[in-house]
Amino acid sequence: MQVRVQQERFDLGAESEAFAAGAAAAAGAGGIVTFTGVVRDAEGGGLAAMEIEHYPAMTQKALEQIASEAMQRWSLADALVIHRYGRLVPGEKIMMVAAAARHRKDAFEAAEFLMDYLKSRAPFWKKEILHSGAAGWVQAKTSDEDALERW
């Protein structure tokens, strides 16, 4: 299991390859699900950048708790979480998760669980900066909070 919080970009292909060749392979995984989050344009367009703030003292720990929970609940072969912070432009990758399991159902479910918890329980906050100069914090959706209930 690996959790990384970083400002730098990451290479999705290289990370996926390394994940598949590492502990996932050693533990006999039969399937790997990955999800990648990307900065999308604002509603109505005009997004210049997205600033992601986080709580450094808490972030790593919170993500590790979420990933550990996924490892246990789905007996995963391996799990990976990478989440960036700082100023990102549209199209840039924000984060990725990968879940490796013996069977695909567990890998899919674990990846969804990781995403649902990252959305509402990892201490990140996003601010949209428009070309016009206007800026606003992205509001949490009730649907994101509700998504936790199914787990």
Binding site: Y55, M58, M95, K119, F124, Q139
Partner: peptide, 25 residues
């Protein structure tokens, strides 16, 4: 650094953080 509640006791706590609902992912 652990999520808590507003009625939680502060005895022994060293750092309190206040923030809006998180928007990770």
């Amino acid at each position: 650094q652990e999520l808590s509640e507003f009625d939680a006791p502060l005895a022994g706590v060293r750092e309190v953080a206040f923030f809006p609902p998180m928007t990770g992912g």
